[in-house]
Amino acid sequence: MSQHLIKDLIPREELLDSGHLACPGCGAALAMRMVLKGLGENTIVALPACCWSIIAGPWPQSSLHVPLYHTAFETGASVASGIKAALVARGDTETTVMAWAGDGGTFDIGLQALSGAAERNEDFIYCCYDNEAYMNTGIQRSSATPWGAWTTTTPAAHPEAHPKKDILSILAAHGIPYAATATIAHPDDLIAKIRKAKGIRGTRFIHILAPCPPGWKAGDDETIALARMAVKARVFPLLEVEAGQRWRITLDPPREPVGPYLRKQGRFRHLSDADIAQIQELVDRRWETLERRVRDGG
């Protein structure tokens, strides 16, 4: 896509102020900035415990120009359900309600409430910004942490022993009208998906890869490069799923091996070449499954 088109696609309007409290190079801050550009100011945010509980700013400040309700860890989807019901009860069917949660609040502790809301097809957008561990509490593993990764609860001698939970398939299996993945390195793709989601009614789920320099042990100038490499290595494919059936790969750059992506991150430093080969095999298998879904549906 040319520079000209990207410039036209991304609104200049900023709904996130520069005085937020994110770490340098934070992918989660960029993700919020881009998503709000896509949604606009007629948006209410339900924010369960996550890095963004800090990034948004302490009382009485807020780095957002939209209303924001801080809430308990596992309640992003359920509080968003209540906000939406209240708006509709008073005749407002236009304001977008967005739950904004990290991977812990989505893959782990908030999954029950999210599944309940998705099954009821609650009319909100749920964004999970995924930095692949509990970063706000100091880098503990979540079920979004990939196989082989170091965290403070999966030390290098015994790194993460399970592959990352396939949250998109779980949400798609609820048959919700729209589910998609995106990254902060592909703002055109991200904003296009947010706008598409905004135009749909029912539960919409956007899974955004948001690299975390301290948690991934990478440079704070490498966030965007890492997210781009994750897509090229097919570790994090850019997808959308409509009605749980129609799978589509929205961006499919020339394939690259996983090695360089992993070697760029200190959290994978302990991995042997054999480990990396095993990860490559896992990634390849998941890609085959994905291609089959794109071809056959479901």
Partner: peptide
Amino acid sequence: RFIKVESEHSAMAACIGAAATGV
């Protein structure tokens, strides 16, 4: 609006969201 939630925890969470929105 009657939200048939999947747990009491979510029942109270939904009430919190609704009450915070002024209803």
